[in-house]
Amino acid sequence: MYEFVLAFVESSVLLAQDGAASGGPAFTAEAAAALSVGLAALAAGYAERGIGSAAIGAIAEDESLFGTGLIMTVLPETLVILALVVVFIVG
């Protein structure tokens, strides 16, 4: 995971330098909004990892739990939806 973060920081530093050269802000509001959605999705994915594996375990034992398992697994998705609000506010 750290490699991704490093790669991200490196490319954003480049972006910042480009922005500084052309006179505009280094990191535009749209870019920040996009970043917030991305981070929210990352966190949701991490949360779903644990819930998903527990849900699969429960479904393997008792198939009637499929519905409950599915709902529990996608609950953290609400994080991404809330983060999307930021895009509308900024855009």
Binding site: S53, G57, A58
Partner: peptide, 13 residues
Amino acid sequence: SNYEYVSARVRAR
């Protein structure tokens, strides 16, 4: 370790 998976199954059993 996959604690989530194992403990879900174990609880069902």
